[in-house]
C-alpha cells in the first residue's frame, strides 16, 4: 500500500512537471520570420534571436521565387504568430500578396520589415506594420568620413535622386542640419535618367559641393550608367564619393571613396527592440514609423583616399574594412 502511495506521488510530481514545462513552452508567443536564403539575412536572424529567444518561439520560413502565397497562408495558420518579421523585398511582396487574399475584416498581425530597399514605399499598404530602412542616412557616412579625413572640408554634400526619393532626401537634410552639414540635391525628373544625370552632376559640381552621396537606386546607378556617366565624372570630380554598397568602393573601379552599409546582426538587434515595443503596446505597430538603421559597417577605398585626401591613420581603427 505504501509503495503504491509512493508511486502515486512520483507520478503526480511527474505530471505536474510536464504541465509546468508545457505551460512554459506555450506561454511563449510565437513569431514567424519569412525570408530568403542569404548570409546577411541569416545574420539578422541571429541578431533577433540573441535578444528574444527567451521570450518568443521563433519559426523561420525560407521562401524563394517559386513560393506561392498559399504557402504563407498555411504557415500562418499552423503557427498563428503574434508577429511576423519580413526580410528582403521579395518576402515583403509575397506577404502583401497573401494579405490581399484575406477579407478586409481579418485581423492584421503586426509585422516588422527589414533588409529591403525603399521601405516606406514597400510597406505603406500593409496594416499594422513597422520597419527599418536599409538605406543608411548620409549624416552617418559623413560623420564617420570626417573622423578619418579631418583636413578635408565636408560641409556641403550633393545628391542626385529621382522624384520618389524627395521625402527621404528631406529627412536626410534634417539629420544633416544637426551636424552642420548642408545637403543640396538635384532631382532627375521622369524615367529618362541618362540625359539628365550628367547635367545634374555637373550642376552639383558647379555648386562647389565637398562630397557626393550616391543613394542605392538601380535606375540611377547601374552597369551602363556607371560606364557612361559615373566613372568619367568621378575621374574629374576629385572629391570624396560616398556610396551604399561595397562593390562601388573597390579600388579597381576608381570610383567610390567610402561605403557605409548596415550591420546585419545589429539590424536584427534593432528589430528585436521594435518587437518588444510592439508587444508592450498591445501588438500594435501603427504610429511607429520606419526607423533608420542605427549600426553600420564602414569600408574605405584606401588607395583613392590616400591618393586624393589626407588620412588620419590612427582613426582607421574605427573602419571595418580597408580596401587597398
Amino acid at each position: 500500500m505504501g509503495k503504491i502511495k509512493q508511486y502515486g506521488r512520483t507520478i503526480l510530481v511527474l505530471i505536474l512537471m510536464i504541465c509546468c514545462m508545457a505551460d512554459y513552452v506555450y506561454a511563449k508567443d510565437s513569431l514567424l520570420i519569412i525570408r530568403l536564403e542569404d548570409i546577411a539575412l541569416k545574420q539578422a536572424v541571429d541578431g533577433i534571436r540573441s535578444q528574444i529567444r527567451q521570450d518568443f518561439l521563433i519559426v523561420e520560413m525560407i521562401v524563394n521565387a517559386d513560393t506561392a502565397e498559399n504557402e504563407i497562408s498555411r504557415k500562418m495558420k499552423d503557427i498563428s504568430p503574434k508577429l511576423v518579421v519580413l526580410m528582403d523585398n521579395a518576402a515583403i511582396s509575397l506577404y502583401k500578396k497573401f494579405r490581399k487574399g484575406l477579407p478586409d475584416s481579418s485581423e492584421a498581425v503586426p509585422s516588422v520589415s527589414m533588409m529591403a530597399s525603399f521601405m516606406d514605399i514597400m510597406i505603406r499598404d500593409i496594416k499594422n506594420a513597422a520597419g527599418i530602412f536599409y538605406e543608411v542616412p548620409v549624416v552617418t557616412s559623413i560623420v564617420n568620413l570626417r573622423s578619418v579625413m579631418p583636413s578635408v572640408p565636408l560641409k556641403k554634400i550633393g545628391v542626385v535622386h529621382r522624384e520618389f526619393m524627395e521625402q527621404s532626401v528631406k529627412t536626410n537634410r534634417e539629420y544633416c542640419k544637426k551636424e552642420n552639414i548642408e545637403l543640396v540635391s538635384q532631382i532627375i525628373p521622369g524615367d529618362d535618367v541618362k540625359s539628365y544625370l550628367e547635367k545634374a552632376l555637373n550642376r552639383l559640381r558647379d555648386q562647389n559641393i565637398d562630397a557626393l552621396w550616391i543613394p542605392n537606386d538601380n535606375k540611377i546607378v547601374n552597369a551602363s550608367l556607371l560606364q557612361s556617366v559615373w566613372f568619367p565624372f568621378a575621374g574629374q570630380f576629385g572629391k570624396p564619393i560616398i556610396v551604399g554598397v561595397e562593390v562601388l568602393v573597390q579600388p579597381k573601379f576608381k570610383f567610390g571613396t567610402f561605403a557605409v552599409i548596415p550591420d546585419p546582426f545589429e539590424l536584427g538587434v534593432q528589430a528585436a527592440e521594435i518587437i518588444f515595443d510592439i508587444r508592450d503596446n498591445g501588438w500594435k505597430a501603427e504610429g511607429r514609423g520606419i526607423e533608420p538603421p542605427r549600426s553600420v559597417f564602414k569600408i574605405i577605398n584606401m588607395e583613392q583616399a590616400q591618393r586624393l585626401f589626407r588620412i588620419d591613420k590612427e582613426k582607421l581603427s574605427n573602419i571595418d574594412k580597408i580596401l587597398q
Binding site: P137, V139, T140, Y175, K178, E291, P292, R294, S295, N318
Partner: peptide, 18 residues
C-alpha cells in the same frame, strides 16, 4: 530605453532622433 552595443551607435541614435 534604447540599447546599443557599439559606442559610436550612441551618437547615431541621438542624431537620428531615436
Amino acid at each position: 530605453l534604447r540599447l546599443v552595443s557599439k559606442i559610436e551607435d550612441m551618437l547615431q541614435i541621438l542624431t537620428l532622433n531615436m
